[in-house]
Amino acid sequence: MSTLIKYTANGATEIENSFVHVVDGEPVPQGADIIVSLGRIKAEGEALLASGVRVGVQIEPAEAVEDLAELLPRLALVAVAFPKFRDGRAYTSATLLRQRLGFNGEVRAVGDVLREQAYVMTRCGIDAFVPADGSSAAEWSRAAGHFRHVYQTAADGRTPAYAEPGRR
């Protein structure tokens, strides 16, 4: 099983990833927590959600995260895909999950997930990572927390520079 880095206000920790990514068309393994595609959750959602395992959905960059709106309260996690680290659409997906759709569960970055993007990912409300570069939790934590100040509001709720007490 792959390493998963969980990021909270207290920093990053490595945990075991209990979720199995189920490829479209393949059978769902019995008793395992699963991540399925948006297409599959739309087609088989009720059956999957009734099976008693925890269910997550993976959103590809071109997919509209709003399509998940009604299902979100029943999902354990949403995985946002980075086919290439340069593809920044998942940042909007994650932001909307947190700010607009009010999703409080895990938002997990999968794909070309590199430590260099840890800062922007955490700021967009992504709180779990499957790093593609072998980063440790400590390295991830350092990269994500590198900046003492932020200039704008974002999904992580950090206080922007203009609202810091030291600003005036």
Partner: peptide
């Protein structure tokens, strides 16, 4: 300038 500096959502635009 401030708003756009390291804007997390808009750092990897097309």
């Amino acid at each position: 300038r401030q708003w756009s500096t390291l804007h997390p959502e808009f750092s990897y635009l097309p």
